[in-house]
Write a protein that binds this DNA or RNA. Sequence first.
DNA 1: TAGACGTGGAT
DNA 2: TATCCAAGTCT
Length: 299
Amino acid sequence: MQAISTPPPHLSPVLADWYRSGARDLPWRRPEFHVQFGAWGTLVSEFMLQQTPVNRVIPHLEAWLGRWPTPTAMSTATPAEVVMQWANLGYPRRALWLHRAAIEISERHGGDVPRDVDALLALSGIGDYTARAVAAFAFGDRHPVVDTNTRRVIARAVDGRSQPGPAARRDLVAMDALLPHADDESAVFNAAMMELGATVCTSRAPKCDACPLATQCVWLSSGRPDTGDGRRRQARYEGSDRQARGAVLKALRHSDAGEIPLDEVIHDWRDGAQRDRAIDSLIADGLAEASEQSLRLPH
DNA sequence: TAGACGTGGAT
DNA sequence: TATCCAAGTCT
């Protein structure tokens, strides 16, 4: 009689040792950080880290938490203030979502970041990754935290593929099967998988020589084949609507009065229709608003 | 589920 | 110079 599923590889012990011996010293991994900001600090850091490199996040995180050290403090800010503070971090809708989440936390949870994953998932801008990252890293609970790094490590070490496929719910199940049973060990395992993917098992030019999983990695032992499951190509940015939106928002952030006459908003943009489209979509997204004959950040 | 959504550093 | 890529979420 064959087992229903193959037993999971025991990656945890070697990975935990590797993580404890050489993980990067990042602000949100320091005990003082949790003492000072609690789960709110973790939540803000995870928002900023969505699709944005660690090195760009760090200075912004410190400035943000210095200004708004609690959800309730941030809930009193205006959208214009949070979009301004978000500066050039990218994906400015995250600033709006984070602001909204702060308000929701104040209203629904008495100003305390909830511990329950479903309650976290119900907050604006929080999805499968961020909800479980907060529950695991801020509260120490056992949940599969799946990001692009985790998925890549599993794709290679376990499945023998060069790149992960498109993100899917099944990734949560796969990660859960690898997770140690104890809460504290599972939190370290989650962090270690992410750290490995970010620093060793990178998308391009992985450093297999330095990998703690080298002897167990299915992909490496099979000769690092290109299994062809390439990612979707990212849409061209140059000349895109996204670029136009970015230019409009940058102009608003840099305008002294926080306001620009409508006919002067990136007036030298090559494609007038695209400029108008950008302005309209920013207004629709709540990232800008028209008042009189001018455009400004949302009040 | 595929596409939209910023920005800047690395290759 | 062009493309890739980064601790995702929403529609």
